[in-house]
Design a protein around this nucleic acid. Sequence first.
DNA 1: AGATAACATTGACGGTGGTCAATGCCTGAC
DNA 2: GTCAGGCATTGACCACCGTCAATGTTATCT
Lengths: 252, 252
Amino acid sequence: MANRDLYGALPGPQGGDIGGLLAEVLADMPDAQLHGLQGIARLRDIPRGGVVVTEGGRPDEIGYLIHGALGMQKQLPDGRVHIIGLLVPTDMYGRLFDGPAAYDIVALTDARVLAFPRDAFERILVSSPEIERRFLVNVLDELDSAREWILLMGGHKIVERLASFLLILLRRMLRGGRHRVPGAPVTVRIPIRRVDLAHYLGTTPESVSRALHELEGQGLVRLRDAYEIEIADLPGLVRVSGADHLGAERAG
Amino acid sequence: MANRDLYGALPGPQGGDIGGLLAEVLADMPDAQLHGLQGIARLRDIPRGGVVVTEGGRPDEIGYLIHGALGMQKQLPDGRVHIIGLLVPTDMYGRLFDGPAAYDIVALTDARVLAFPRDAFERILVSSPEIERRFLVNVLDELDSAREWILLMGGHKIVERLASFLLILLRRMLRGGRHRVPGAPVTVRIPIRRVDLAHYLGTTPESVSRALHELEGQGLVRLRDAYEIEIADLPGLVRVSGADHLGAERAG
DNA sequence: AGATAACATTGACGGTGGTCAATGCCTGAC
DNA sequence: GTCAGGCATTGACCACCGTCAATGTTATCT
């Protein structure tokens, strides 16, 4: 299957319009700071399977994902792979003020990132309290996401986990600006292959498949194709997920 | 069972020696800053089951745990409880620059915390880049812990998860300054009850019990009592855990 | 000391999901 | 068009664990 099928047609600015990308990614940042960052940013394209950061290596760059999907993954001694974090556009990767990376970061689809040399980024952070505060909040959000994921992984049954995953995807999509047309059915696009999703949910591709089709059997979703999921019964999906993901949305 | 059995006899300064506690918790902080914090700190004792921060409520305090154990937990609609984070002494709780808490924080044992009013703490943070940087690194570490936990939750078999848990406990203990006597057998103390541990590992007390005794049957650990676990075969335990927790320790 | 409560452990049973194997579907190459 | 490769799906089987119930164990109270 072609990688381009895993994400939609490339929207937004093409080529070297780094300023536009920055503005999108770091919305409402003061212009002066933006300009400082712009000078050192660089666009990079990474084919699926490409390694962005290697475990144990000191990451030499900080980056924002423009499109595609990245996975933070760990190779277990027995050969199994586990994905402990999924990065979607506008997410950040890389570590600051700190030691070697604890996990590989690999491209789960063809991807494009906006990369900053680590040291330059750190200098800007130190020199600008505003950006640093912003970054801190960024990290706090990531921490929340991680904890949300822990909660998800605690759901024993795979259908639960899958439903939670779909809801999280949906929430990110709605927040991501692309507001839905009132009449049209809501669909979410699973941005990665079954194997990777399985590794992410802590299970197997087979079980993912079964769970997905069980949800379809219950009339909660409809599979337009393997990646395009139409949400048919949102409250039902929430009920199956066990947790109140949309409650969290309302509160936020 | 008495709560006091869940943690050792209270070591260190008693009563109002807040300066001593602060120095312990926030080691190598510049004295001037320390003094600023000292003025607003307050000791609080919380009985087991007591709620420190309520989900949805704006937490009005930031705190460091002095002893005992706190759990970040979420009540699911169907009545199940899930613990998504375990706090042990020197860990921090509470959120800065941000909205309502996403989870309850409850005392899993009788506990003592060093609490700061949230706004005062934020002011100090804003006025002191050093403390803020320190705090940022703190949060980054928490993020790492959370990710480590996600990895743990991915281990399908309970024995795997339990072994990982014991290794994480062991690592924290070794790092916590209390260095072991070379000849003596290494033991870790599980700081919480079976039920809570089960909720933490995403399983049931029964399964935890079985897994623990299976590890004992394989000669990897010895149970001195329900809470005091003697590590008999460290490499074996690492092997069962699946992940290379001690590798991470070596690399760090 | 005896009674009681809280907790941990052990046992039996059934369902969920991991594993292995086969089949189906779609894409790209020639 | 045909073929081959990469995925997704489906099916069969069995280990593992969640559930329910009973029993052990330890600490607290009078």
